[in-house]
Structure formats: C-alpha cells, structure tokens
Amino acid sequence: MDGRGSLRAMLGNIARPMAGMFLGTALVLSLSGVSQAGKITVYTSYEEDELAAFLDAMKNDVPDIDVDVLRLSTGDLRARMLAEASNPKHDVIWGWAATSMVDPRIVEMLEPYSPAGIDKVPERFRDKDGYWFATTGYMGAFCVNNPEMEKDNLAMPSSWQDLIKPEYEGKLVMPNPASSGTGYLHIASILQMMGEEEGWAYLDALDKNMDQYIKSGSKPCNAASAGENTIGISFALRAIKNIDEGYPITMVIPSEGAGHELEANALMKTSQNMEDAKKFLDWTVSKGAEAEYNKWKSIVTMQGREMPEKFTEAGLPDDISTVLFEVDYAWAAENRDRIIAEWQKRYEN
C-alpha cells in the first residue's frame, strides 16, 4: 500500500466513528424530550454515597427500568420543583423530606399511589390520602468533638437540658432554622416537646451558649468533626458517617428524645410513564430495597429491621423507637412562618 492509500484508510478509520458519534448525539438530543418506554426520571435528596448503593440494588432487582436520577439538597430541590410546576420533568420523588412534601403546592402535583407491599410501612409513616409514604428517615443527634472536649476538660452532654449548662458557653453550633429545614425541625420538636412557653425559655438559654447559627443544615456536625466547634446539633447519620470517616467525635442522642425527619416517596400525576414509575415505587418498599436501607439509614420505617454494626457501635439502640420523639409534622408545617418570625426576632436582632 502506498503512503497516500494508508493515509486515506487512516482518515476513514477516524471519520467513521466520528460520524457515528455525531449521529448518535443528534439522536440522543432529538429523543431527550420524548418519554421513552422503560425510562423514568427520579428527583431525590438521598446523599450521593447511599444513593449509589440503592441504585445498584435497584438495577439488580428491576433491570428493565432505566432510571435517571437527579440529586439536589432538600431546599434547592423544592425551589426547583415549584419553579418547574407548569411542566414537571420528573416521574417520581424519592427520599425527600416529608416536612417539605406536605407543602400544599407540592401535594397538588402528586398522584395517590399505594405500592404493593405498603402494609409493611406503619400507617403513621404514610399520608392518610395516599399521596406519599416514607420508607426511611433520619433522627436528631449531637456530634461532640472529643479532643476539643478534653482540651477544655468538659463533661459529655447527654440531653437537651445539658446543653444549656454555662460551661458550654460559645461551644455550640446549630443550623439556622430560616435557611435550613433540618434547623427548623430541631426548633419545632423542642417547642412540641416542652410546650411553647417552656420551649422558648429553653431556646433563650440555648442561645446564650450558641457560637453560631450556621446557614447550611449539613454543616454543624462537619464543623464539630473538624474541631471548628465543639458540639454540633445535627443528625445521627451524619455523626455515624463522620465517625466512619475517622473523625474523633462521639454521637449523643438526647435523652429527652430526638426529633426526626422522614424521607418520603411519591408519584407525580404528570408522569408520562406511570407504569414504570409505579414499578419503581413498588421496589422502594421491597425486601431488596429494605436490605439496602438497613445498611445506610438510621430510621427504616418497615418493621423488623436489624441494625448494622457500625450504627450500634456509634451508639444507636437496636430499637430506635425508644429514643424518637414523635414530631407532629402538620403542626410544624402550619406554624412555620410564625415560629421562624419569632425565632428571628429573638435571636437575629
């Protein structure tokens, strides 16, 4: 073969796959707006690592549905879904804060659905009209930095009441309820637990010890883990993960009971692929899903779970219902504006 021939052959070798790529891209672009059989879009707030594990299991159990997942934080996802309300892009909401799900503007977009096997989920974790159901959740806990405690020679707190002791002055950090749903949940559960009058008096005392109300809900435990603060008011799962990561912290579940948040699932009434969306939701209450939840979540609403070792080692009891404070979500949602306004008036002026 002469030089020119081989050059042409080489160019051909390059050109063909390139042409294929262009055609392929054009095809993908032209199809992207159209719903496809076997393909659904899921919006979720599950964290990256647990999400990856759940999806692996799902692909194994239900190989014929192709699931596209978009993950955003709870607040950002809510803003996005409300903005997209005239033309929703997703078929399913999965693992998203129940306190946000009950927003009437969200419920309006949902289609009631009770998946096969929903009976495993106790009724108190489901919407009474069947719009949503929660399979997992997370509970409140304190992240306490051990080296910082030793440095100041402090005793480990064990309850909400301990946190207002004067020795913790300037040592605490918690999420700002105005910017963070998890922050609001802490405030709401304290007010429900103690009653409003006593609750606000307690929050006044807590405020004296607070170093900062951090703007992001995920930050307090991270700040305590990195030693930027001593005690972070946060969630159990964050503490467990950070202990696993190697940070020298202790998880404390307040003895009065821990507030908690449920992560709920729902079907969109605008879904173009109801059949597969329902198949997916069926999977979320299946044995296979439950097995994965058990490995990752502090609260699994299906009955008869077995707690993973890393959870019990971090200090979670086998039966978490003994430490959970039962939050009244409807009350929390209804009184939100009033409570946040009062909170800002007291602590942000």
Binding site: G75, R78, A79, R105, N176, A178, S179, G181, I340
Partner: peptide
C-alpha cells in the same frame, strides 16, 4: 444574598 437563600431554599418563599 443569604437572605434570598433563606427565603427561597430555606422557606420556599419566592
């Protein structure tokens, strides 16, 4: 700027 974030992402108040 943080107030906007509070209102929109924190409280869904567009």
């Amino acid at each position: 700027a943080v107030e906007i974030y509070n209102q929109v992402s924190g409280q869904a108040n567009f």
